[in-house]
Structures are given as C-alpha cells and as structure tokens.
Design a protein around this nucleic acid. Structure first.
Lengths: 195, 195
DNA sequence: ACCACATCGAACCGATCGGTACGATCCGGG
DNA sequence: CCCGGATCGTACCGATCGGTTCGATGTGGT
C-alpha cells in the first residue's frame, strides 16, 4: 500500500464516524441545544478525541454542515439525473424530492440556514452561503438547458422557491407545500420561456 | 379616570419599554447569543424587574417576537394600502417593501423564523406559525381581489416567495433579490389569472 | 516484544448561564 | 406625611457551558 501511512486504529475513520453521528443530533436539537459533554456521550467518544479532531465545537459544527451540504447536493443531483433530460421534468423532480424530505418526521428545515440563524458571524455562515450557491448552480443549470433568456435570474427565483418552501414546510406545516412549490416553479419556467 | 387603577410608576410602561428595547438586541445577536445579565444591563433594568414582568427569559422572548410580528404586519399592510386597489400593484408593493428591509444594515432575516430555528418545541414556534399565517392572509387576500381561481393556493406560493426571498437575502446577499422576487410574484399572479 | 499513538473516562477548570433573594431607594395616592 | 409597591443594584445560587489535562487501556506497525 503506497501513501496513507496512518498510525493506528485510523483517526480518519474515527473522524468520519463522529461527523456522521453528530449530524442528526445537532440538526434535531440545534447547535446550541446540545452540549459537548452530551454529544460525546451519545457518540461514544471521549472529549479529548473530539477536540483533537476538530479543535473546537465550531470545528465539528462546520465539518458536520459541510458534510450535510455535500450529501444534500449529491441527493438532489441524483434526483434530477433520474428523470432524464427534460428541464421541466428535472425541475419537477427537485420539488418532488423536497416533498419527500418534508414528510420525514425528522424534518426541521434547512440545517445550514438554521445554523446560520444562530451563529451570526463565523465561518458557519460561509458554509450556508456555499450551500445556497450550489443550489443556485443546479437551478440555473436547469434554466440554461431550458433555453430561457436569463437563466441566472430564473435560477435565483427558483432558489427562493426552494428555500421558501422549506421554511414554510418547517414552520407552517401544510401538507402540500412541495406540490404548490413545484407548480409555482413550473409556472416560472413557462413564463421565462415565453417571455 | 375610571378603570386603570395601576399602582405606581406604571409597570405597563416599563414592560413595553423592555420589549421595545430588547427586540433589536435579541434580533441582532440571536436569542441564545445574549444573556439575561447583559440584556438587563443594556436595558437599564434590574433582573428582578425583568423576571417580575416576564417570568422567564422565554416569556420575554415570546413577548418580543409577538410585538415584532405585529409591527411587521402593520408595516406591510400600510405599504400595501399606500398603492391603491390594484392587486398587481399591491403585490409589487409587498416586495418593494421587503427590498427596503433587506437593504437595512441591521437586516438578519426573519426574526420569527430565526427564533423558531433555535427554540425547537416551545410556544416560540407558535408565534412563528401565526406570523406566517398572517402573511398568508395578506397574500391570499391580494390573490382573491385579483380574482384568481385558487386564491389560497396562490397565497401559499407567494408566501414561499416572501420567506424564500428573505432567506436568500440574508444568507446569499445578492443585491436585487427583492426585485427578482417581485418579478416572480407578478409572473405567478399572471399565470394564475390566465390559468 | 516493544513502542508510538489513538482512544477512553473522569476529574477538573474558569466562565457563564438562567434565576432568586435582599436591602436600599424612590415615587405616587390616600 | 407616610406607606405600598415598583424599581434598582448586587450578591448569590446551582447547573451547565466549552475546553484542558492526565493516567489507564489497547492496538498496530516494526
């Protein structure tokens, strides 16, 4: 085996396991809602290990958010790719995927937006910004493939729908939120095509 | 003077002053970002007074959010009323008002949504729910006056745009977010009218 | 077999948290 | 003038916070 000398018991694996296990807990209860002590207890990990890997609680939070953002975008990209090449179908697929997410009992809104709402300055907000940026890329890409005049503008409007639907689903829990959002998105696409 | 016996120095006035002064501080730094001690110091009020009026920090938070929600809706209703009777103008006025808000340096997103993102169960979330409900009433009302087939559905789609634009403006800071949202809203209105 | 190192578990740190208690002060209605 | 109550300022409470330290344990590479 070249490269990857690594010492013992593989710290990288430990780190990844921490990130994976801490994610749902921090998402469910909020970043400030769960202390490092309890976090370590639930993870079956000592505080020393946690601090060696992440330096501070914020380091863990950042890693967790980064991983979650990555996961979300992979999942979204897969949902889009699964329906073929038609831009309208792809757009509908985005909101159908969101609708499936909203119905999960653990759904608590967008983790990145929630985190940014409580950690005001920090690099945490940067993660949220990048998350929205990647969402924008996906939506603008669909808009571009649909051949609209202003794909970036349409992408931004669709981004608002995505995040708005997530907020409404989280805090105003109406069953068909994603369906309404999908219809709105398709209407915006149609308007951009004809305009 | 009948009624309003009141003891001395008017506790109601004190309470109102606390709510008004605490609002901006809690909004700027986040609910968990400012402790009761500092809060009292900045307000020029003793902890005993605060706890006599609100029982607990959450009581103050709830009162502050309630007051803010009220203020927002009065402000929005005024912006809508100022442009006359045309539904499209009224809808545009909503997003123009939002755009003015987004440009304020203290803008940090929707206070109620931010609060609900960190206080998970609680009556705080109920305040957020009512806040969105009132927003929905305003938007559905505009939709109804526009004579669309499904005013409630259009209201919900517009609500997503409002909250989505606020999230995007707060976390993805693009200058013309409100303009994009307004165009999207008008497009949805037009689509609902013709559809 | 040995050693470097990752990990654990628990003790410990100072700071801060939300909340309470108390004496001093001050104001307004009788 | 005087008393009830609203207020202040401060000290104080136990709990918890994020973070550090250390000895014990166990594992893997050599």
């Amino acid at each position: 085996m070249p490269v990857a000398k690594r010492s013992t018991i593989d710290p990288a694996r430990t780190r990844a396991a921490i990130v994976e296990a801490a994610g749902p807990l921090l998402y469910e209860r909020g970043i400030d809602g769960v202390g490092v002590a309890e976090l370590c207890a639930r993870l079956g990990v000592s505080k020393e290990t946690l601090y060696r890997h992440f330096g501070a609680k914020d380091g863990l939070v950042q890693a967790v958010l980064e991983a979650r953002s990555e996961r979300v975008h992979r999942w979204m990209a897969a949902a889009v790719a699964a329906v073929g090449d038609d831009p309208a179908d792809q757009l509908a697929a985005v909101f159908d995927a969101l609708g499936r997410w909203y119905r999960e009992p653990e759904f608590r809104g967008c983790a990145m937006v929630n985190a940014a709402a409580q950690h005001h300055d920090d690099p945490v907000r940067a993660v949220t910004g990048r998350h929205l940026g990647r969402y924008l890329d996906l939506l603008s890409g669909i808009a571009a493939r649909a051949g609209v005049a202003d794909p970036d503008g349409l992408g931004r409007r669709l981004l608002m729908l995505v995040e708005g639907a997530t907020v409404v689903a989280a805090h105003h829990g109406v069953a068909d939120t994603a369906v309404q959002a999908r219809e709105a998105a398709l209407a915006l696409l149609a308007a951009a095509r004809s305009g």
